[in-house]
């Protein structure tokens, strides 16, 4: 009985993870520009891989393997932001026509809010 519960839990989490991977792959094809695509890929990087690996850890052969799988998740979540930050920085610094692809705000957010308040 308990094995079936484990199986169903694993199946649910893995299917959710696979659906999120699918949506992020769709996003990678749908969006027009590299940095927008990066947001879609970040979705698969965080929640997709997290759900898949937690689901697999539920039905791992023994306790230490499950702990190791969770360690993979933690390592991945620590390293993924660094790599996507560097990629984004590469894109921002090498692209000479940034204004074509996004709205660039020159002022900080706090300053913009103050100006809006003054206008109102």
């Amino acid at each position: 009985m308990i094995e079936w519960i484990r199986f169903i839990l694993t199946a649910l989490l893995m299917i959710a993870g696979l659906v999120i991977f699918g949506i992020s792959t769709l996003g990678v094809f749908r969006f027009k520009y590299a940095v927008n695509r990066m947001h879609a890929a970040a979705m698969g990087d965080t929640l997709g891989v997290g759900l898949c690996l937690v689901g697999l850890a539920v039905s791992a052969p023994d306790f230490f393997v499950a702990a190791k799988i969770l360690m993979v998740v933690i390592f991945f979540w620590l390293s993924a932001p660094v790599s996507s930050h560097l990629l984004c920085r590469l894109e921002i610094e090498t692209n000479e026509r940034l204004h074509k692809y996004m709205t660039v705000h020159e002022k900080t957010l706090a300053q913009e809010r103050e100006e809006k308040e003054e206008e109102a």
């Binding site: 992020s24 590299a34 898949c52 697999l56 990629l87």
Partner: peptide, 22 residues
Amino acid sequence: RISDRVLAVNMIGTLTIAMVVV
């Protein structure tokens, strides 16, 4: 662009990790 390619390689790496754990 180059970043598209690196991004796709990164995603393939993520999928490979999930496959190994499967």
